[in-house]
Design a binder for these strands. Sequence first.
RNA 1: CGGGGCGUAGCUCAGUCUGGUAGAGCGUCAGCUUUGGGAGCUGAAAGUCACGCGUUCAAAUCGCGUCGCCCCGACCA
Length: 581
Amino acid sequence: MEAVRWSRQLIPTLREVPQEAEIPSHQLLLRAGLIRKLGAGLYTFLPFGLRALRKVERIVREEMNRAGALEILMPALHPKEIWEQTGRFEVLKDVIFKIRDRQDRALVLGPTHEEIVTDLVAHEVSSYRQLPLNLYQIQMKFRDEIRPRFGLMRAKEFIMKDAYSFDADDAGADESYRKMYDAYQRIFRRCGLRTKIVEADTGAMGGSSSHEFMVLADAGEDGLVECDTCSYAANLERAESVLRAPPAFEGVGRAVEKVSTPGLRSVEEVSGFFQSPPSRLIKTLIYVADGQPVAALVPGNRDVNEIKLRRALGTKTLILADPVTIERVTGAPVGFAGPVGLKIPVHADLKLRGYRGAITGANQADAHIRHVDLERDARVTAYADFSYAMEGDGCPRCPGMLRTRRGIEVGHVFKLGTKYSELLGAMYLGADGQKKPCIMGCYGIGVTRTLQAVIEQSHDDQGIIWPVPVAPAEVEVLLINEQHEASVRAAEKLVAELEEVGLEVLYDERAERPGVKFKDADLLGLPLRINVGERGLAKGAFEVRVRQSGETLMIPMESIVESICAQLAELRRARGAEEQG
RNA sequence: CGGGGCGUAGCUCAGUCUGGUAGAGCGUCAGCUUUGGGAGCUGAAAGUCACGCGUUCAAAUCGCGUCGCCCCGACCA
């Protein structure tokens, strides 16, 4: 095989940080010459970016196959009708790219494939003997994101591995789910990623149970909580939490008192005026749920989690009321709503249970009331958990405390039930002769996002530090002086020997100064680098530099291949061990 | 969609307030020199100053409009 020579490759490294990139992984993808932008959320993979991507894909394939899933490839273009059959064209209309062919037929660019795979199975599966079945593909998805950002992290088109399981009964579906859950752990571990598995909301997908695989990173787009004591962890959209002790405020037992608060609308303004912590306020938000106004109450220091609130209310739609509605419902302009005397249903967050001595709006312009005892003074329709969990809240499962983190969602597994199989007719005939819908699960991995997450989690201020299994090549041979003939001969022989034992080698023989090549090597971040120069040759040795640790070793020329293989094995092993811990 | 920022050479940016005909560093090309952490010297190429309309004797610079990109928010599988 012809050696991969840097001078014959396209690895356009950048000395400076491109203006377009904010977070480390995005900057490094560009600076290391792995990707280039075409437009917002649209990227070209350059040769070395593609090599790393293929490595991730290979790991995903191997583990999916090992778990018994079958690879297929579905179309990216879908007739619009199939999306209308499940009602998801309406649900997803904002993110679906819609196009028309020359016959003016409506098509969409597939944002996901539940409908397509279910339609396939509806046609091809008819007996319980064909189940369980798990079909997957690795393919480009298209989503008209509201805001693409951070390079590959949230793009308009991205590569996804999506798998869909079909089972005859719940026990089988649970087993399929578990297999995928296990496979995902193996996949991310092999990619060198530390992931946190969290309970998640099922969102537009529908279904019952769901877990997300999160890569912890400050630049992550998702919030999550984890318990410092037990294994509880959840996406912030879903996270439950408890207040250990109801707060005790002064003024408990006294009668409600109206206080003039001209122009003070926000929690900050009001709590400042009363010299009270924001948690003492009861924040009252007016929503319109399925067309009906409702009040939602949360402690003043917390925000309403609308996903949890909608679930608690059991409504399809939930939007914050407009100022006109608020004034009509509360009798006061925005900023002075309170639960006392409201004529609409009042839903209170669980953390407000037992709130006494609280402050809230008076439902009258420029006035608040204090000494409010929620039970005594207001008619609360129902209590439910619909505020966002916060750092320091109690764990819902144990006496521990919750911490908040940020993460990148790289994988998501769902139990879907029979929603799609019923709508699209994916039925099978059971042993009992009964026709039943397949029980489905779906399982996604953002492949391109995973690649970026690896970089986000594994870099230093000099560049990328590739985990061996996903590195675009395993070893870089760096020729220090391309005009020194003995060095050239030694380097080329070395490259040939390394390739002989099956290693992937990048040979930097460019006519550049050593410093340039060193900097580029650190930036590109291949696990091991061998410097070939006069200094080492004089001692009959090669200088090996380990990217991760930064340590430099002098290895005798005769044992170099053996040493490199051993060190790569060690690097793989160390990463794996880290995962166990 | 709301808020903010930006758009000048391949990249990073100055010049815009106060209008006078295009700049720097890096990169590229040629040559010399140099070769262990982004060298030095000499020379060269390279920009319809995002686009359009307007104001003006004169527009990168002022006005209006459009497009693109980035960030924050809302949203999100």
